[in-house]
Design a protein around this nucleic acid. Structure first.
Lengths: 143, 143
DNA sequence: TATTAATAATTAATATATTAACTAAAGCCC
DNA sequence: GGGCTTTAGTTAATATATTAATTATTAATA
């Protein structure tokens, strides 16, 4: 590869990678009338069924102020519901509706297909190395 | 590292990495009253002095509709100016003002310091490998 | 227990991102 | 040269991101 490319900074290269692969996924999400942040929320709810909003924020990497709006719109579209916690009255429990659950079997296979396509473009080994190194970065102290 | 972390998808790990390192840079940008996209624009202008808006869009990875607003605000704050191209009347040439140029010597050293801090957290070799692999990803066909 | 500190969700204000559509100016092609 | 296509910049509408501030609750503690 050309040296100029590698002379780009880590932030720019991260954005560049996202800029390359995310459009492939967004095409799928659009088919089902959801956005990418909404898809991130759905993926988590497909695993947890119900989860407190603050935990959802941590797992989705969507900050609370943004997440409030994301959940608002997903609620309006009937994908999720808000409920109050009985234990801690400050907490809001977000849970999946049938409509939200239904999307799982429709979206996941298409997402997997794109993921396989990416793997085939860069070797499974490279992909694993990338994940390993990105994980290392994510463990750096955030302050 | 724990396996669960690596079981996250490539998109999520890319976001996680950005989520870890970008706050460190944003603190610097905020000191000088600029945002992160504005800093990306400045960094390019520090190298090119003047550049057509469409090229600036490609290099900054900021799409034209977003970039219009970014340049609007940077122009209002006196960091850049818009000029018309004599050759192609469709084109807008963005060029740096003295005020925008001045920021270079103030911001770059602090940015470099953070970058060095990141390097020290993960080995220069790991960082280079990461850039190498991210570059590979960015070369995947975007369609 | 009254007070204080910390947490969860939200609101507010501003800046960006995303997609589609639109205008003006080149480029092309016959 | 008139018509067609492409390109550059912009606008519009909606969704998110970012930072600071607010409200309600809970936890902590003197």
């Amino acid at each position: 590869m050309a040296i100029e490319e590698l002379s780009n900074s880590l932030p720019m290269m991260l954005y560049k990678a996202l800029d390359t692969i995310m459009p492939k996924f967004r095409i799928i999400f659009k088919e089902f009338g959801i956005t990418e942040p909404q898809a991130r929320v759905l993926r988590i709810l497909w695993q947890h069924k119900k989860i407190a909003l603050n935990e959802l924020s941590s797992l989705s990497l969507i900050t609370p102020p943004s997440l409030v709006g994301v959940i608002d719109r997903m609620e309006l579209n009937g994908f999720v519901e808000r409920n109050n916690s009985n234990i801690d009255r400050r907490k809001i429990i977000v849970n999946l509706t049938k409509k939200g659950k239904t999307l799982e079997s429709k979206i996941l296979p298409k997402v997997e297909k794109v993921y396989t396509e990416i793997e085939s473009s860069m070797t499974k080994k490279d992909l694993n190395n990338t994940l390993f190194l990105l994980n290392k970065i994510s463990l750096i102290d955030k302050r």
